[in-house]
Amino acid sequence: MYESTNLDLFPYPFHNIKEGSNYRYSNDLRKLEKDHTNCVVITPEYEKQIKRKRELLKEQPAVRFQSYPHTMAMQWEVVEMLIEMAVDRYPEHFQVEKNGNHWTFHNYILNETESFIFGDASSIELEPLDLIGRHFTTDFVLMVHRDDNLYLEVAQESYAALFSPHWNKGMTFDEIHAPVPFVSRTGVPLAERVRNFLIRNVLPGEPWTRINWNLMANRWDVNYETFDTWGPTRFLVTPENAGDLVRLRVEEQFFYRMPRSNAILFVLNTQFLAMKDLVLRPEWLNQTYSILSDIPKPMAEYKGFSPFIEPTVEYLKNLVEKIEFQTN
């Protein structure tokens, strides 16, 4: 388990919610500004996260990585994009040497080198996205645009929340989001509305972002495969231990239209903040307490935290009161 220690890099999910307002589902996609389209971020937890990500990929390859054989060209396109982003943003950590199609990628944080013939899957042991994805802490999902829908054709996911690359392989955007029980004010299912929005607006060179959030009870990944293990742990939370056990799980999502394949790459940056650490930013503590006290039951059910929302809110209430008492 890792937790965010540099709060300046933590994608706090409620920035755009006005003080005193509540949280409801909406199409909250935001276009990335021209100078902020790079999704590669190195946090203080980089090495810890990479280590765990690789362990999971090694232990459960079929659970964590899925693809179709026809996706090689699109996977190489992602390799190229991620290497360019890494080198551009962190030249002190990443370098690439290109000698024709013979590429050598250096990761100086891990002291590792990857040499391969670009576009030739036989020059590497893993599939292209599986290989490059192991150098970045984010998860990757490649959704291919066909028949006015997006189909999941490649996924490397180690921090899945009610998701599974194995189960969701080949599904449409709508099928993946079928459990979303919400409709927009105009009665259109939310998943359909977001899908159409992504198809229309995510264009080459114009990536978008949104932040998804959840609460986790002492658990990093809550995929379908391990529901029998983590399902019961949700009932162990009390107002006394919620500060340590419950974490705000934030998934910062980036959407890139790949110019050659026309697929949309979903990049998912998952970060955790323990409830007790909210105190480091009192404004976050107050707002999170206010929002969580007002979560509708169906939303808590859908997000899977209904078994421990009450003790968590109770913990936050006590913490807010304690801080107020100390400052008065």
Binding site: W167, N168, K169, G170, M171, E175, A178, P179, Y224, E225, T226, F227, D228, T229, G231, P232, F235, P307
Partner: peptide, 30 residues
């Protein structure tokens, strides 16, 4: 031999409905 709750979602790829593994000791809450 794990207990499975049969969900409403079907996968063309896997040719079946989702079977969520669960712990029967907590069955009432699943």
């Amino acid at each position: 031999q794990i207990s499975l709750e049969i969900g409403p979602f079907f996968s063309r790829e896997r040719k079946g409905y989702i079977g969520y593994p669960y712990n029967p000791a907590f069955a009432t809450t699943n």
